[in-house]
């Protein structure tokens, strides 16, 4: 019954929410939408999933790296693996090359997500097809705290498509190359080194570097503020 009620009404007031979750509620007020995105804190992140079924599947690992504007801080990053609730799905073993033995260091999902929320703080999130990752993170948060992340999000795939449509230099520069917009194809197309077998951490790093490249085109397109950026890179 409790779980049924809490799903409907959220947690009762008698349960004190931890600081990092409490902060989420006032987060939107703190973001300066009129400021330059070059002075804004970002976190690029990616998850590995057992599959794409929102109901059945869940997060295997999460990786994230911080940026300030277009500058990446490679060491300011986290990578966590999650103990699987169900058997490892064969397909994702092939895609991510995570094997069962890798998961020895894995932790509980709740704890990993808590640490992730602490890590991102107020930052604007960056991801490639980020809505998928957000959904799986929020699934955990809703279940545990009854909230979803309030952080604003930038989708590099949307941003890429927008630039392709709106910046002739951008289009001309990359003429005749692949149309694929998956992360690895884009990495190759824009010269982001991506030789590592991909896990969520390297994918987050690649995403950060794509973002780093894309935003150099923005000033000439009249995109100056965080608000402008969010408008052209909506998930």
């Amino acid at each position: 019954m409790t779980s049924f009620l809490s799903n409907i009404f959220g947690k009762g007031p008698e349960v004190e929410l931890p600081d990092h979750i409490q902060r989420q509620k006032s987060l939107k007020k703190r973001l300066n939408l009129g400021g330059s995105y070059l002075d804004t804190d970002f976190v690029a992140f990616d998850t590995e999933l057992t599959g794409l079924d929102f109901k059945k599947d869940s997060i295997i690992s999460i990786g994230a790296v911080k940026l300030k504007g277009g500058i990446i801080f490679p060491s300011n990053s986290i990578y966590r693996m999650v103990k699987p609730e169900s058997e490892l799905n064969h397909k994702s073993v092939v895609v991510h090359e995570i094997t069962h033995s890798d998961l020895d260091e894995a932790e509980d999902l709740d704890r990993v997500i808590d640490d992730f929320v602490k890590f991102i703080g107020d930052a604007v999130l960056i991801g490639h097809f980020i809505h998928i990752d957000l959904n799986f993170v929020n699934k955990v948060l809703k279940k545990k705290y009854g909230i979803a992340l309030s952080n604003r999000a930038v989708d590099t795939s949307t941003l890429h498509d927008w630039l392709y449509e709106n910046d002739s230099r951008f289009a001309r520069h990359h003429e005749g190359m692949t149309d694929k917009t998956d992360l690895f194809s884009l990495a190759q197309k824009y010269g982001v080194p991506a030789e590592k077998a991909h896990n969520s951490f390297y994918d987050a790093y690649i995403t950060a570097q794509l973002f780093q490249r894309f935003i150099t085109f923005l000033p000439d397109c009249g995109i100056k503020t965080v608000k402008d950026l969010l408008a052209v890179s909506r998930p």
Binding site: G70, I71, I72, F73, P74, S75, Q209, Q212, R213, T216
Partner: peptide, 14 residues
Amino acid sequence: LADNIALEYFPKGK
């Protein structure tokens, strides 16, 4: 040193 390092990108001509 690696803890404090940043990665920056400069497009051609910058």
